[in-house]
Amino acid sequence: MQTRTQVQVLRERYEQVRRLTVDICQGLETEDYVVQPTADVSPPKWHLGHTTWFFETFVLKPHCPDYHPFSEDFDYVFNSYYETIGRRVVRTDRGNLSRPTVQDVFRYRHYVDEKLYQLIELASADLLTEMSPIIELGINHEQQHQELLWTDIKYILGNNPLFPRFLNSQHPDTTDRYSDQGFLSINSGNYEIGYAGPVFSWDNEHNRHTVYLQQFEICTTLVTNKEYLQFIDSGGYTDFRHWHSDGWAWVKTHQIQAPLYWYYWEGEWLNYTFDGLRAIDLQAHVCHVSYYEAYAYANWMGLRLPTEFEWEVAAPKMQWGQRWEWTESAYLPYPGYKRPAGALGEYNGKFMVNQQVLRGASTYTSPGHSRITYRNFFQPQARWQFSGIRTVRP
């Protein structure tokens, strides 16, 4: 028999995470839910539906024989990239989904939540044991989309010519000034890398293995807007010598002159934030830079970016969690990595090419969703995420 505590803990954790997703959307107007200004950004309505579809597809349908889907169309509408599941709306067309309506999507969330609560309450101990890891994966999946909601809402509003404020009570404290800037020295030697523990972790954090590191020194603080502005003022975006070839081509093709959301207006740099267009806060950590820009800045300084292994070894002695930090490491499998079977095996493994690893977390990472072994990853040109820079010297 399942214990009442097991059911209660699982239900409360699920309910808390599902509520936070809805709370993040407080302050949005109906029109905001359907906008998709670029391919990387998904409309908030789609995030609300996709995270619900995940629980419907991987928990309710396989484990509840009498479950009736809310809509047969939603497999097609809210599947993201799971080839195993079947056809899906092309990612760039998510902003064309005027239907289902926002109200339909909220009804869908309520419907699936109620069915899942019923399933948890009635499940046998064996069934609960079978479902719990999948529900936990779905919870962590939704937490990822909560941060994506913040990033995508910012991109939607930050590309509105009116630069509107986003008034939301869930807005985290973004005070991010650290003192005592300096470099932390790490001795050469063998170090254990990767996750080993009893709580949830992603498959790409396994297997724990040994790496050898040369001695290095890593900066204890992130690069600030003031420091990055010096790079801009020195002609950093006009000197090819600081850039990778691909990065330099990206700068020229897209006429990049500054981090995302920076605007030069009447002799002054301005920055779009959730509070609207503001003067650059020089003491805040630079944000919304690509790997290309992070590499160029470090190169300009005569420094480099850390590898993900250097970052993981140094992290217990550093302050981190304000920005996702670009590393010099390509996103590759650890030794002995095996992609899980079935559709859930598509979650991480198939993206291990042409991506760069970011470590840490940001102020918009959901509570309880960060750890030292966490491996985030994006293409080197991506910068709509809350990404920053930490440097290393030999």
Rank of each mutant, 00 (worst) to 15 (best):
residue 110 H to R: 11
residue 195 Y to L: 08
residue 282 L to R: 04
residue 313 V to S: 01
residue 63 H to A: 04
residue 391 T to R: 04
residue 33 Y to E: 02
residue 102 V to Q: 01
residue 357 V to D: 00
residue 280 I to W: 06
residue 237 Y to T: 11
residue 350 K to H: 03
residue 222 L to H: 00
residue 296 A to I: 11
residue 75 D to T: 13
residue 76 Y to S: 09
residue 155 Y to R: 08
residue 184 L to R: 08
residue 362 S to Y: 02
residue 232 I to P: 05
residue 254 H to C: 10
residue 88 R to Q: 10
residue 11 R to E: 02
residue 194 G to M: 03
residue 92 T to G: 12
residue 127 L to F: 06
residue 379 Q to I: 00
residue 287 C to T: 10
residue 367 P to Y: 03
residue 353 V to F: 13
residue 296 A to R: 04
residue 331 Y to A: 05
residue 78 F to K: 07
residue 381 Q to V: 11
residue 161 P to F: 09
residue 52 T to C: 11
residue 185 S to Y: 09
residue 54 F to Y: 14
residue 158 G to K: 05
residue 25 C to T: 15
residue 234 S to G: 01
residue 160 N to L: 04
residue 202 W to A: 09
residue 263 Y to I: 07
residue 114 E to Y: 14
residue 277 L to V: 14
residue 242 H to P: 07
residue 65 P to N: 00
residue 162 L to S: 15
residue 365 T to G: 04
residue 108 Y to Q: 06
residue 18 R to G: 09
residue 183 F to W: 09
residue 258 A to H: 01
residue 269 W to S: 12
residue 345 G to A: 02
residue 286 V to P: 00
residue 301 M to H: 08
residue 382 A to S: 13
residue 317 K to R: 13
residue 187 N to K: 10
residue 55 F to H: 06
residue 46 W to K: 00
residue 221 T to V: 14
residue 268 E to N: 15
residue 107 R to P: 02
residue 237 Y to P: 12
residue 283 Q to M: 05
residue 303 L to R: 11
residue 40 D to A: 12
residue 86 G to T: 04
residue 342 G to C: 02
residue 132 S to W: 00
residue 173 D to R: 07
residue 210 T to K: 12
residue 321 G to L: 00
residue 228 Y to I: 07
residue 99 R to K: 11
residue 170 Q to C: 15
residue 253 T to Q: 15
residue 38 T to F: 14
residue 390 R to Y: 01
residue 273 T to W: 08
residue 125 A to C: 08
residue 182 G to F: 08
residue 38 T to S: 12
residue 222 L to A: 13
residue 385 Q to K: 02
residue 51 T to W: 08
residue 342 G to F: 03
residue 309 F to Y: 12
residue 64 C to A: 08
residue 247 G to R: 02
residue 326 W to S: 01
residue 215 Q to T: 13
residue 66 D to W: 05
residue 253 T to V: 13
residue 226 K to S: 12
